[in-house]
Write a protein that binds this DNA or RNA. Structure first.
Length: 244
DNA sequence: TAGGCCATCTGGTCCT
DNA sequence: AGGACCAGATGGCCTA
């Protein structure tokens, strides 16, 4: 694992050549490095030209002391350029990795949406639902299915109502193994993670959005046409997701 | 050509 | 600290 960014940068605060010698790989072009430190190196001798001993205190105005001071400035400048390059490189590397994760996450989300589309009734023209249409349609579809079950359980004896009323497209909602069309991993391993788990609850609940008068579906709305469901049910159910 | 949809990048925030 | 999640920005593609 790479060292934390802050650690790397604090290591670079020191301008000595020994502390930066292992970072030269981050700069691909030493010439660029030298160019970027213009303020102190515009016309000075090369770094290796340093000769003689460090300046003696009290003699900093001698030509040799001035050369040493210039050399120290140049080294600090080079170290700063290297540290900025390292910072940029590490930030860039983390950004690229984060972008990759984000891309994967969105791909997984799209795969889940595709799985959802696959268990929804398809339209005759096979038009692919957009994301928002898929979510609204699924919401309405689940609501209508559960409402159908509720009415069927009220009016029909025995437990056959489900099998008779559920359209074949909703096989994953029936008890038993999940449909091959749905990727079990996309929904998680637990039963609660199943898309069918969400279908059961909100419909008979008086507090459900279904009971709200706020939303109504428009006549002929294609997203409210469910094959296999009683028409009179569809024409009396409120749509609690606004559809424009 | 405007508007809708989408993929991707990005920085911020939250969570483990 | 690193990953997940989120929302905003941006640009490409398509269609009416």
């Amino acid at each position: 694992m790479p060292a934390p960014l802050e650690t790397c940068l604090s290591d670079l605060d020191c301008a000595s050549s020994s502390s930066t010698s292992d970072l030269s790989g981050f700069l691909t072009d030493e010439e660029d490095c030298a160019r970027l430190q213009q303020p102190t190196s515009a016309s000075g001798p090369p770094m290796t030209a340093r000769k003689g001993s460090p300046g003696i205190p009290g003699t900093s105005d001698t030509p040799r002391a001035q050369d040493d001071e210039q050399e120290r400035r140049r080294r600090r400048g080079r170290a700063r350029v290297r540290s900025e390059a390292l910072l940029h490189s590490l930030r860039r590397s983390r950004r690229v990795k984060a972008n990759d994760r984000e891309r994967n996450r969105m791909h997984n989300l799209n795969a889940a949406l595709d799985a959802l589309r696959s268990v929804l009734p398809s339209f005759p023209d096979d038009t692919k639902l957009t994301k928002i249409e898929t979510l609204r349609f699924a919401y309405n579809y689940i609501w209508a299915l559960a409402e159908t079950l509720r009415l069927a359980d009220q009016g029909l004896p025995g437990g056959g109502a489900r099998e008779r009323l559920l359209p074949p497209q909703c096989a994953p909602c029936l008890p038993g193994p999940p449909s091959p069309a749905s990727d079990a991993e996309s929904w998680g391993s637990g039963a609660a993670a199943s898309p069918c788990a969400a279908a059961a609850s909100p419909l008979s609940d008086p507090s459900s959005p279904a009971a709200s008068e706020d939303f109504t579906y428009g006549p002929g709305d294609p997203l409210f046409s469910f094959p296999g469901l009683p028409k009179d049910l569809l024409h009396t159910t409120p749509c609690f997701i606004p559809y424009h």
